[in-house]
Design a binder for these strands. Structure first.
Length: 756
DNA sequence: GAGTTTGAAACT
DNA sequence: CAGTTTCAAACTC
């Protein structure tokens, strides 16, 4: 490993390096107080640019240190998998520093003033150790070290030797001792960039700082050793460079020649003022000079981690991130973007919550985001809703722009078949999201499956794939089914009991009592929510599938091993109240395909036994719901009017509203509201966040009213042929997975032609 | 290069 | 603590 010094919290290093004296004077322990353990030296990076990318991903946080990079920034080693060309031991570098120092003849007493003659970093680092091939992430700001190093071993010690701050020379809080204690200026000398900066988004965009580079540095840059962000250049006019507005001041460095500031007090001659100002600012906000982004310790030895924790208070480690609103974290206004790390809102959402959070937050602006997945996802959502007009547009799906609309229409025109329909279903199950699945579309998919369209269409490959996808969510779904079944049993026995349950649920989640807190998850609900008294659900009378998250008790119950055992137990399969009978096909050949196959089939295999009357059709509201549904699916799926018993079970049992809504009150907020999104960025489980779907803007019907046209002949044959098998429990004998169009979640229009 | 936009910092 | 103002960088033209 390359942990030499083994510390990641270099971000804290810089500032404290600069302001060590100030901290001493205040007697307050700086969260980033200088500690050589913060320094890790990795002088060599892989020459292969791809490595830089790898490193970037591994060191998203690391550039914070170098972002302002006025201090000694030593790159942290990448993961062990990343091959480094060469890693110089700290001793080697120290030795070079030592030699350089000696060669320059600098001593403490003879050290030149900061203004000039100090030991330039270029002279410190032996070029041979920084060959262009094994380029170290070392940057030279062009500023000079007025190296007042009394003892080169001190340099070595500070740079590379892990030690406590108490072991540092008492006179100096920083690496390079300065005669006049001008740590402030001197500390600008060395910048060793972290790998992350190599590929930060904007590092190539601005040939920043080039004009401040000395000829040597320019040469360095020519040899690809240099990187930007070497030093700060401010243009302060009114802040006197004594406020955090001033980048130099904020970075803990004195303004220097490159600065174009006016009335600058951030200079060595005003050191006292600078320090006093800094103390004042720190007294106001102890984290004012703390790095906003401090990388986490990864793969670090436990003791090191512990040490990090000890050194850096949580408040300093936290990711302050940004509060970007309009720039979408895609411009340099955003510090996160600037530092090349995905800590911005969009990035955070993408990383944490998948696409929906991004879409929720950015709405139509999602098209502007540099997140292709988000756009593709929106396309898919719209495609689905248009393709299958009973499915409401996801409440947070932004309206497509004209180009997108045209694109979608084109896709639809080419894919009005059942295969495409199934594909669209698949898209929205699991694989489309970074989260395991999106409850919203899982429910929609279940809804559709309950309608038997897919089953009747009988596109083996599609079904197989569908089941495969379902396998990922099967456990949860199965639990839902089981719970639903249980609930239904109770419902059949006693409505009073259900009322009691509802009451209990309401007690736990009072917001559930309010009809507005019902989820718009199902078409039927959507329609009813749109003022239509008669639900149009494809599966009438289905109630809302409760999410395991909807009720903590339910969740815990469902996830109990007992529930699962019960669900899978043979007894359960073969006996019991018919109303809650679940059809299992444990022995079907499909087992060979997947361990979960039987259970998958449980979901998909929903054909009711003929003798059993459909609870759906018999239910009070079922008949009407069907009437208004689209003809195609009704006829296609359940021409006899019967419905899947499982579907019935699924949707009829518990009156508990489906899908917990995060913080009930928030549910009612406008999806465009920033406040609404705030909850998405906390530590709420992603699945809960994903289920956080506002009611507003639900679209009940397809804009184009385009419907799939199932292969009727084929469908007919399948029905007649497969019906016995279905009755006997042999269904979905998917013999092969034919070449199926790519269902890449982030599909593009190309897939439309591929499946034809 | 001037003017605008943006988000952080500072202020009230 | 929320809202407003100030500020300087980023951005646009």
């Amino acid at each position: 490993m390359l942990y030499e010094g083994g510390q990641n919290q270099r971000g804290t290093l810089r500032r404290c390096l600069q302001f060590a004296e100030a901290n001493r004077s205040t007697g307050r322990r700086c969260f980033g107080s200088w500690d050589p353990t913060n320094i890790t030296l990795s002088s060599h990076l892989p020459e292969n640019p791809s490595y830089a990318n790898i490193l970037e991903s591994s060191y998203l946080e690391s550039s914070a240190i170098s972002s302002n990079s006025q201090a000694v920034i030593l790159s942290e080693p990448p993961t062990s998998q990343v091959p480094l060309c060469m890693v110089k031991s700290p001793e080697v570098h120290a030795d070079k520093v030592d030699r350089s120092l000696r060669n320059n003849g600098n001593s403490l007493t003879t050290a030149p003033r900061p203004s000039g003659i100090g030991l330039h970093l270029n002279s410190i680092v032996n070029p041979t150790t920084m060959s262009s091939n094994a380029t170290p992430r070392m940057k030279f700001t062009g500023k000079k070290i007025s190296c007042a190093q009394r003892d080169t071993s001190a340099v070595e010690h500070h740079l590379f030797v892990k030690s406590s701050s108490s072991s540092l020379p008492t006179n100096f809080g920083v690496t390079f001792e300065v005669e006049n204690n001008d740590y402030y200026q001197e500390s600008q000398a060395i910048v060793m960039e972290s790998p992350a900066n190599f590929s930060s988004p904007q590092e190539n965009a601005d040939g920043l700082e080039e004009n401040q580079l000395s000829p040597k540095n320019k040469r360095k840059k020519t040899s690809n050793i240099m990187e930007n962000e070497g030093c700060k250049r401010c243009n302060c006019k009114r802040s006197k460079c004594l406020k955090l507005y001033c980048e130099c001041f904020a970075a803990g460095i004195y303004c220097a020649e490159p600065c174009a500031c006016q009335e600058c007090f951030n200079k060595p001659e005003y050191k006292d003022m600078v320090l006093a100002t800094r103390q004042q600012i720190e007294s106001r906000n102890p984290l004012a000079f703390a790095p906003k982004i401090v990388r986490r310790v990864i793969e670090s030895p436990a003791d090191k981690v512990e040490e990090v924790s000890r050194m850096t208070p949580s408040s300093a480690r936290h990711k302050r991130g940004c509060n970007c609103k309009k720039s979408m974290c895609l411009k340099k206004y955003c510090e996160c973007f600037q530092k090349g790390r995905r800590t911005g809102v969009a990035s955070k959402l993408l990383r944490k919550s998948g696409l929906y959070c991004i879409i929720r937050r950015y709405g139509e602006n999602v098209y502007k985001l540099d997140i292709p997945e988000a756009r593709s996802h929106v396309v898919n959502v719209i495609l689905l809703t248009r393709f299958y007009s009973d499915i409401p547009l996801h409440p947070v799906t932004p309206a497509p722009d004209a180009a997108l609309t045209s694109e979608i229409d084109e896709i639809l025109d080419s894919r009005l078949d059942a295969t495409g329909y199934v594909e669209f279903l698949l898209i929205f199950i699991g694989k489309s999201y970074q989260t395991p699945y999106d409850p919203y579309y899982v429910r929609l998919a279940l809804d559709v499956l309950m309608d038997a369209d897919v089953r009747d269409v009988k596109i083996p490959s599609a079904l197989k794939k569908l089941e495969i996808y379902f396998s990922e969510v099967y456990r949860e779904v199965a639990e839902m089914v089981y719970k639903r079944t249980e609930s239904e049993s109770r419902e059949d026995q006693s409505y009073a009991k259900l009322d009691m349950m509802e009451e209990r649920s309401s007690f736990i989640h009072p917001e559930k009592c309010h009809p507005h807190h019902l989820s718009p998850l199902t078409p039927s609900f959507q329609r009813s929510s749109h003022g239509k008294d008669v639900p149009k659900s494809r599966v009438p009378a289905r109630r809302y599938l409760p999410s395991p998250e909807s009720d903590p008790n339910l969740l815990s119950n469902m996830r109990s091993s007992k529930s699962l055992r019960h669900l899978n137990s043979p007894e359960r399969r073969t006996t019991g109240d018919e109303s809650k009978e679940l059809i299992y096909y444990r022995d079907m050949e499909l087992d060979q395909f997947s361990p979960k196959w039987d259970r998958l089939s449980d979901i998909c295999d929903l054909t009711p036994t003929p003798h059993r009357p459909s609870k759906v059709t018999n239910s009070s509201s079922s008949s009407n719901t069907r009437e208004n549904s689209k003809v195609s699916r009704v006829q296609m799926s359940c021409g006899s009017g019967s419905h899947s018993p499982l579907g019935s079970l699924l949707w009829r049992s518990s009156p508990i509203p489906p899908m917990p809504r995060l913080g009930g009150t928030k549910l009612q907020k406008d999806p465009d509201s920033e406040a609404m999104y705030e909850g998405l960025e906390d530590d709420t489980p992603e699945i809960l966040k994903e289920s956080f779907t506002p009611i507003k803007s639900v679209k009940a019907s397809s804009p184009n009213q385009k419907r799939i046209s199932p292969p009727h002949n084929h469908l007919h044959d399948l029905r007649s042929n497969s019906s016995p098998g279905l009755k006997s429990g042999r269904k979905f004998v998917l013999q092969s997975i034919s070449s199926f169009p790519s269902l890449t979640p982030y599909s593009d229009p190309k897939f439309s032609s591929s499946s034809k």
